[in-house]
């Protein structure tokens, strides 16, 4: 099953390598991984998307907790949560017809056109992974110049937070 795991860890050089190394050494898969410092600069927050059986996920959570620099680990998929990913997509937009069509699609998906040239549009879109998948699918494959995705970030719903 697909799981979204949140990790709060010491913002230290090499901490990311420890997580990535753990996954490769133990043969777990990483679908995506995002990391950045939090409001407390001594801490980093990581969101990791992985897949595995319940047993594997249990081991992943335990092994992550075991890393000396990891402060907290949480499986967001266990409760209600919000998942967001950023997509930047550059697409050919030459004819007036093409330009209108892309603009229309972008509006439907609540995206923004953030850069315009005579030949192209660059679109910014956020949402859960599936929404971005759907958007990319809706654009003609032959027209896509470049796709950049950030990987998912996640947070739990409700008033509780993952803090120290």
């Amino acid at each position: 099953m697909r799981r979204i795991i949140s990790i709060l860890m010491e913002n230290e050089a090499g901490a990311l390598c420890r997580v990535a190394g753990l996954f490769s050494a133990r043969g777990y898969n990483i679908e995506s991984l995002t990391v950045a410092p939090t409001e407390d600069l001594s801490l980093s927050r990581m969101t990791l998307v992985t897949r595995g059986s319940d047993e594997i996920i249990e081991q992943i959570l335990k092994q992550l907790n075991k890393l000396v620099e990891v402060v907290k680990v949480m499986d967001l998929t266990e409760g209600f949560h919000i998942e967001r990913e950023l997509l930047l997509l550059k697409v050919k937009a030459k004819s007036a017809e093409q330009r209108t069509e892309i603009k229309r699609l972008t509006d439907i998906f609540r995206g923004k056109i953030v850069d315009v040239t005579e030949l192209s549009y660059t679109i910014e879109l956020t949402g859960a992974g599936e929404k971005l998948d759907a958007f990319v699918k809706a654009i003609d494959l032959g027209d896509i110049v470049e796709v950049v995705r950030s990987g998912s970030s996640g947070i739990s719903r409700g008033d509780k937070g993952m803090r120290l």
Binding site: G14, A25, V68
Partner: peptide
């Protein structure tokens, strides 16, 4: 050394 030893230590420091 921190990289080479990472998979076989409990922890390491530079």
């Amino acid at each position: 050394m921190v990289g080479i030893s990472r998979p076989c230590v409990k922890h390491n420091f530079l």
